[in-house]
């Protein structure tokens, strides 16, 4: 609701706190993995295989979320897997946002030949089916963390570019831009100081979305074994392994799946929450 005057605070707190809290916990656990993780994520112990999680009969106290069929601690593997997922999300997300937004802002504000070149490039780029594109790239680059990051950047910068270009064009039509010209601003300053801040909420919303997408892409690629080396713990790899022993040890599949789901959800909700909370413009 808005009533014209005064700052009207919407009750957006819960969504922001829940999603932000979850992301903070995941980030903290993965950052401090070396100290916090109860076990070595790679240590096998065939005598402790398929131990159930703590709330099921027969659980061992040291293994909160149980062990997989090779006796590796599920919680430790989730923590170390989160490290890979978040690394991919942050690096790929930020790089995609920066490349796409800069090109989008230039195309949308300066128009002319810069726009013609960038827009044409985006059109051609988007004609490639993304999944095929990704597999092709990994085939060329080889598997590994950096290949995933590069694949995401190469494929998804167009998403930012298109949306940011449209928004920059939109903002360029506003009279506050004419008013900045009347004031005597140079063009670069108008783009940076006047239009930039008005496009930023769009970029932030896209960025959190992109981070969620990066987590999913990393999981899918490791699920189909195109991610980093097979024995490194990844959420997608754990889900793939857990699938095989689903009838004997369902927790090996279910635990990383829930964590993956909550993390992706948290990223998208965090973006929405930020927008509600910090946007001074209530429309």
């Amino acid at each position: 609701m808005r009533d014209g005057r005064g700052t009207v605070k919407r009750k957006a707190g819960l969504r922001l706190w829940l999603s932000g809290g979850w992301l903070a916990i995941v980030a903290l656990l993965t950052l401090l993995a070396g100290w916090i993780s109860p076990h070595d994520p790679l240590a096998q112990d065939l005598f402790a295989a398929r131990l159930p999680p703590f709330w099921v009969d027969g659980a061992e106290p040291g293994f909160l979320l149980g062990t997989d069929s090779l006796g590796r601690d599920v919680l430790s593997r989730i923590i170390y897997g989160g490290r890979i997922a978040l690394t991919v999300a942050v690096i790929a997300g930020l790089a995609t946002a920066v490349i796409g937004s800069v090109l989008g802002l230039i195309a949308g504000y300066y128009r002319g030949w810069a726009d013609a070149v960038i827009s044409r490039l985006v059109d051609i780029w988007m004609a490639f089916p993304p999944v095929l594109f990704a597999i092709l790239l990994i085939a060329v680059l080889g598997t590994g963390l950096w290949s995933i990051v590069i694949a995401i950047i190469v494929i998804d910068w167009t998403r930012f570019c298109r949306v940011v270009r449209a928004e920059a064009m939109n903002q360029s039509q506003m009279d506050y831009v004419s008013s900045a010209v009347v004031a005597g601003h140079v063009r670069a300053a108008i783009l940076w100081r006047e239009i930039g801040p008005n496009v930023l909420p769009t970029i932030v919303a896209l960025l959190t979305l992109e981070m969620g997408i990066a987590v999913i892409v990393e999981a899918i690629l490791s699920f189909v074994n195109l991610s980093i080396s097979t024995d490194a713990p990844t959420w997608g790899g754990m889900i793939a392994e857990g699938r095989i022993s689903i009838h004997q040890a369902w927790w090996v599949l279910v635990c990383p799946l829930i964590v993956l789901f909550l993390t992706v959800l948290a990223f998208s909700q965090f973006g929405e929450g930020l927008k509600d909370r910090f946007d001074p413009v209530l429309r």
């Binding site: 506003m174 506050y176 004419s178 900045a180 009347v182 001074p280």
Partner: peptide, 23 residues
């Protein structure tokens, strides 16, 4: 033109659009 800009000012029709909402 820049030095002349100070001397030639404008008031716009729609103040909502002519005032940057984030400043």
């Amino acid at each position: 033109l820049r030095p002349l800009r100070r001397r030639l000012q404008m008031i716009f029709q729609d103040p909502m659009s002519s005032l940057n909402p984030r400043r």
